[in-house]
Amino acid sequence: MHEMSIAQSIVEIAMDYAQKEKAQKVTELELSIGTLSGIEFEALDFAMEVCKKGTLLNDAQIVVDKIQAIAKCIDCENEFKIVHLFDACPNCQSYRTQLICGKEMQVKSLLIE
């Protein structure tokens, strides 16, 4: 369950920025997470609930922007939505594909008071 250490990093980053701004509380935390980043979204939700307790993020709403993974086929240059890392290009059935996006793991913004 690596989501727990991911959540700890998220809280650490958010706290650092919130404290620099002398925030009283964080009301919303926005994350960008790619669908092929290796993060289980439900596990992250759970881990965030645990990690934010007792911090400025205690009551923060966690907004996760899921970024749909897109791959490009090296053989036919087709771009397509990729669900699994082992998906073939729907156009030419090649497995020689390259991810264009979908690996993101970012703390995007905070809403503070």
Partner: peptide, 16 residues
């Protein structure tokens, strides 16, 4: 409003 938004845009794995 007292609430305001700050851009962070930091990779979660950046420290590691």
């Amino acid at each position: 409003h007292h609430e305001h938004k700050i851009a962070v845009e930091v990779d979660i794995m950046s420290k590691n």
